[in-house]
Write a protein that binds this DNA or RNA. Structure first.
Lengths: 209, 209
DNA sequence: AAAAAAGGATGATATATATCAATGTACTTC
DNA sequence: GAAGTACATTGATATATATCATCCTTTTTT
């Protein structure tokens, strides 16, 4: 079961359009809906209140953006911002609860889905704490190529600070690593445009950190 | 609902005794059971295959140790090791699934429980990536005092490497910070014995990093 | 009780990354 | 098209932490 199936939950959902840069929901806010994306991309990140964010995920069409406040305290712990013009639909959490009560398979899919995310958070924790800048940038580029754009050549609205936020480092450090990767013929890094030239090398750098 | 309620799920569970240092389950292994603790304590950590672990949690009596492989691929992504002689009971994941199918409220509690963990993982990610050594050690000491031992003076089987693993740093760095905290009169750090003298100061250090 | 092993601690040095300031380029607004 | 703003980049320096080796203390084993 994919996010698409969760999307089908809500027969009376409402559509909302967000412009580039607009915040869909904000950390510490009240969580009333899950958001599913119809068109566009969204960056989902942890804020620490000091402009030192951790970008956890780029959400794409047919994906759901929820959050761990569900059933806990109904607060947002993540911030979601439209990277480009994005069409979303809002799914009321009360509807989610209703379906959970009447459809046990749905709940099991939800738990499974949460666990898949937890696995990724574990990878993130290990990566961000143990790898150095080259390993982390390599991992971020591979994530974008393999899981977001499905292409070793991709255009993206992400800027250098976004890449830095994905890799737990400052913008200047991220730029230096990208420049070194270019100098070594591993990638081409343009403005909002990347091409991976030596994927094997990138994977190796990503593994060893 | 607490872990205790989850524990009651299994009427035909089996008890297992682990000696100090024994591994209850190992990352990459097959997950067949959830573990609930009856007596003793367990450290639950992420392994990266290079003795650079991240210790996520100290599990206590009446707490459950599960893992995100449940319903995904049934593999372990965490390692659990007994910190002292520990009595556990094993709850078969098939039984968990059965209860989920027949008891929607149970599933909702499970989702809630997982979300509580996700919130803590988010805090961990922000803490370990943005704070410096003093902030991280302060946070680890507060976690032990407030969430594990419920006392500002506690004895613990944890050693310096364990504290370092909780704080994503090397053993030597952890020792240096503990020594500085002692020199500043913030704590007393003995072997397997800690006393927090200035909790406000520790909190402040923990917040600012 | 003695020996061995494990853990705590220290000092010196190397390395990685942040910080800061400044410049150049690209994009947006008027 | 010009002005203003945002972003990318660079260089120099400061700071934080890892690494390495060694020694001391505590705990475990014989």
């Amino acid at each position: 079961m994919t996010d698409e199936q969760l999307t089908k939950v809500d027969t009376n959902r409402r559509e909302v359009l967000f412009k580039t840069g607009e915040t869909i929901f904000k950390s510490s806010g009240i969580q009333t809906h899950f958001i599913c994306i119809q068109r566009g991309t969204v960056k989902v990140y942890l804020e620490d209140g000091k402009d030192k964010n951790i970008l956890l995920r780029i959400a794409k069409p047919n994906e759901i953006i929820s959050g761990p406040g569900f059933l806990v305290d109904h607060r947002h712990y993540l911030t979601a911002t439209a990277l480009e013009e994005t069409t979303t639909c809002f799914v009321n959490v009360e509807d989610i609860k209703e379906v959970m009560r009447s459809n046990p398979e749905f709940s099991m899919e939800l738990v499974k889905h949460q666990n898949e995310k937890i696995i990724r958070y574990f990878e993130k924790i290990l990566s961000l704490t143990h790898k150095q800048t080259h390993g982390k940038i390599a991992e971020s580029l591979l994530y974008l190529a393999d899981h977001v754009y499905n292409n070793d050549f991709f255009e993206t609205p992400l800027n250098r600070k976004d890449l830095a936020d994905m890799s737990a480092m400052t913008k200047e450090s991220a730029i230096r690593v990208l420049k070194e990767f270019e100098a070594e013929g591993i990638i081409i890094a343009g403005n909002h445009r990347f091409k991976i030239l030596n994927k094997e090398m990138l994977r190796r750098i990503s593994r060893t950190g």
